[in-house]
C-alpha cells in the first residue's frame, strides 16, 4: 500500500513539473533557433532596419516592420475593448440587479468562446465591406477591421475579470461614500474603481497580452505586407501572421527563413512574458484583502 501511494505521489509531482518543463522548453527552443539566426543576421539590423523581406531575393530583417503591425492591431483592439469592457463591468457590478447579471455575463462570455478563425472570417467578409462604405480608401486587407473585431472579442476578458474585482469590494466602502453624500456614479468611479484597481489592471494586461498573440483574425483579414506604418487603412503584417505564412509554405528546415519564425516568435514572447509577469506580480502583491 505504501509504495503504491509513493508511486502516485511521484506522478503528481511529475505532472506539476510539466508546467516548468514547458516554460523551459519554450525558452530553450526559441533561444536555440534565435541564436543561430543572430549568428547570420546582425541584431542591430534586426532591431533598426525598417523592412522585413526574408522571403525575397533582397533579404532584409527589420522586425519593426512586423512589430508595428502587431502593436497597431493591438492598440485598435484595446481602444475598443477597454472603455466598453470597463463600462460594462461597472454597470454589471454596481447597477444591474443580480438576475440581469446572471444572464448578461455568460452571454458576453460567449464572445470569448468563439474560435478566432470565425472572427477572422467575420472581419474579412462583414466588417471590412461595412467599413468601406464609410471609408472608401480602406483596403480589402487592413489593420482597422481585424483590430475592431479583436477588440470585441476581448471585451468579456476585461468586463468579466474587472467585474469580479469590482464586485469583491466590500459594501462598507460604498456605504461610507453614500453616507458622505456621494451619488452612485461618484461612488462607482471614485471609491469602488480605485479600490478594485489592481484587478482591473490585471484584466487589461491579460487582454493586451491576448491581443498581441492573436493570430487567425489578423492572418485572415489584415494582409501579408510587412510595413512600418501606423496607418490602419492599408494592408500590414503582424508577427503572428508571418509565422503562419512561413508555416504554410515549403520552407526547408534549418534554412535561414525557417529560423526567422523563431526570431519573430521570440520577439513576441518577450513582450507577453513581461506583461504576464507584471500581472502576476500585481495580482499577488496588490490585491487588497478586505476582512
Amino acid at each position: 500500500m505504501k509504495w503504491k501511494e509513493k508511486l502516485i505521489e511521484s506522478f503528481l509531482v511529475f505532472s506539476g513539473s510539466i508546467g516548468i518543463l514547458t516554460t523551459l522548453g519554450i525558452i530553450t527552443v526559441l533561444l536555440y533557433e534565435a541564436v543561430q539566426f543572430f549568428s547570420e543576421v546582425s541584431i542591430v539590423d534586426f532591431l533598426t532596419d525598417t523592412e522585413w523581406t526574408p522571403l525575397f531575393a533582397n533579404k532584409r530583417f527589420g522586425i519593426m516592420a512586423l512589430l508595428s503591425g502587431t502593436l497597431l492591431t493591438t492598440l485598435i483592439a484595446i481602444v475598443i475593448a477597454l472603455p466598453l469592457g470597463l463600462i460594462i463591468a461597472i454597470y454589471l457590478s454596481e447597477y444591474a440587479d443580480s438576475r440581469l447579471r446572471a444572464y448578461i455575463k455568460p452571454l458576453l462570455e460567449v464572445l470569448a468562446s468563439i474560435p478566432t478563425v470565425v472572427y477572422g472570417f467575420f472581419a474579412l467578409t462583414v466588417v471590412t465591406p461595412f467599413l468601406q462604405k464609410f471609408i472608401p480608401e480602406l483596403a480589402g486587407f487592413n489593420a482597422l477591421s481585424p483590430g475592431i473585431v479583436m477588440g470585441v472579442m476581448i471585451i468579456p476578458l476585461i468586463s468579466s475579470l474587472s467585474e469580479d474585482a469590482l464586485y469583491a469590494v466590500p459594501r462598507s466602502l460604498r456605504e461610507g461614500a453614500y453616507a458622505l453624500g456621494s451619488s452612485k456614479l461618484q461612488t462607482s468611479f471614485r471609491v469602488v474603481l480605485p479600490a478594485a484597481s489592481s484587478g482591473v489592471v490585471v484584466s487589461v494586461i491579460l487582454a493586451i497580452s491576448r491581443a498581441l498573440g492573436e493570430t487567425m483574425i489578423v492572418a485572415i483579414a489584415a494582409g501579408q505586407q510587412p510595413r512600418l506604418t501606423f496607418n490602419p487603412l492599408v494592408p500590414i503584417e503582424t508577427v503572428t501572421t508571418y509565422i503562419v505564412q512561413v508555416s504554410l509554405g515549403d520552407v526547408p528546415q534549418n534554412s535561414l527563413e525557417y529560423k526567422t519564425i523563431f526570431a519573430a516568435g521570440l520577439s513576441l514572447f518577450v513582450f507577453t512574458f513581461i506583461l504576464n509577469n507584471i500581472s502576476y506580480f500585481i495580482k499577488k502583491k496588490y490585491t487588497q484583502k478586505y476582512e
Binding site: T22, G25, F262, L268, F269, T272, N276
Partner: peptide, 25 residues
C-alpha cells in the same frame, strides 16, 4: 509556488508560441 507562477505565465503565452515549441521539440 514556483510551479504556480509558471502555470499562470503559461496561460498567457500566445498559442502560436506553443506551435513553435511543438514544431521544434
Amino acid at each position: 509556488s514556483f510551479v504556480d507562477i509558471n502555470i499562470s505565465n503559461l496561460a498567457g503565452v500566445p498559442s502560436i508560441i506553443y506551435g513553435l515549441l511543438g514544431l521544434e521539440f
